[in-house]
Amino acid sequence: MAGISLDKVGKVYSGNTRAVAGVDLDVQDGEFIVLVGPSGCGKSTLLRMVAGLETVSEGTIRIGDRIVNDMEPADRDIAMVFQNYALYPHMSVFDNLAYGLRNRGTPKAEIVRRVQEGARMLGLEPYLQRRPRALSGGQRQRVAMGRAIVREPAAFLFDEPLSNLDAKLRASMRLEIRLLQRRLGTTALYVTHDQVEAMTLADRLVVLNGGRVEQIGTPLQVYRNPASTFVAGFMGAPPMNLLPAAALPGLGPAATIIGFRPEDAVIDPAGEITLDVLAVEELGAQRLIHGRINGEPATLVFPAETEIGESLRLSIPASALRRFDPATGRAIPG
């Protein structure tokens, strides 16, 4: 068990391509941190630097109280779950789980005990003698998890471990990963581009964009108070509406961008805002309304039974409004 701390970590590839810049992050022992961002934002590179699969160009990475910058992956006391699972195809499930323990000279009886225990935890007991190719996608995912668990490492690193599963399985594995991590109390660093996964799993989120940290915070902090228009537009499905203040007269100083969540608008016949409805999407429990406010696109969420006409009169509570600087994209406090 250990925390992980990153101090001004950066990655520059030869040819001066910068992938990651100045990342500061303190992961508490036992915390579940999710790195989230669009593809190419540097989240995987960051994770791979922590794992030791990429060299660290700038800054220092500590796992526990050891600086691990120049340490081999094997010596960092971490376990990693890969996107494609990276199971050894020529070994049985048992051997896949035992491989890391054998390499470390763990006594035989101890290996058997740990593998059995890990397999029981993940419901893999009936499959221990099978080869990975004889398993379903979900089972392979569990084997990959099992390989990390039996090692009993200081930290788990997850590199988009659920993105090869179908939507239903993904949701259930998500919950399972969360429960397992809670139970084991092991620090976890988890990379995903899926903001729902990020919201549901994380103790704290790190939103990355273009190799830089946009915001670090609990899922609700990030959701309610995005630090920038990028975060506002990335987190949440549908994302926060961002409109120039000119389109929403009276709601904020001119020359700012005003943001509000789709579920925060209220239908109010006396409201000052008019939404011209373009399309309605039924989600079952809710309706998604796409339309325009003074010509600017906006999306709103209402309960399923809401009556929708050609246009809607709306009001937005002042507490739900967020303001951003149009030049920098950063949030304006207050």
């Binding site: 794992a51 992956p73 094997a74 990276a86 491989y99 390499n103």
Partner: peptide
């Protein structure tokens, strides 16, 4: 051979020769 296999083996504590012998050669 997917690179992630070698990487997984590296994290699993296998040195370069061990990796070649126990992962690459069998594959």
């Amino acid at each position: 051979i997917p690179q992630s296999l070698t990487e997984a083996a590296a994290i699993d504590g296998a040195g370069p020769f061990k990796r070649f012998w126990s992962i690459t050669l069998p594959l």
